[in-house]
């Protein structure tokens, strides 16, 4: 996530003309990427929650059982 966002910010800082490129009437590359960054944040969190619920928690439960014995 940090990489995506820092990339986006660096583009804003150093590649203004690129972000100003028009893809369609009313849609510049900058706006499209901005929306994509928000969607990426959603996606990453979703993936993390699924991973944590499935793998991290089971691993923790296993460790906890071991330490109980």
């Amino acid at each position: 996530m940090t990489a995506i966002y820092v990339g986006f910010i660096l583009l804003i800082a150093y590649a203004k003309p690129l972000l100003a490129t028009r893809i369609a009437p009313g849609l510049s590359l900058g706006i499209l990427l901005g929306v994509l960054v928000i969607l990426a944040a959603w996606l990453l969190i979703l993936v993390y929650v699924r991973w944590a619920n499935r793998h991290y928690d089971t691993a923790l439960a296993a460790l906890r059982r071991q330490s109980d014995i």
Binding site: A20, R22, G30
Partner: peptide, 29 residues
């Protein structure tokens, strides 16, 4: 997109691109 396009027609292409508020790259970062 029609909304963004209307904005660009009225106030110029620049509103859809970065630059006005954070003119300094370091400031943006």
């Amino acid at each position: 997109l029609a909304l963004f396009d209307a904005a660009a027609q009225q106030y110029g292409e620049a509103v859809l691109a970065p630059g006005r508020l954070v003119s300094d790259p370091l400031d943006a970062i």
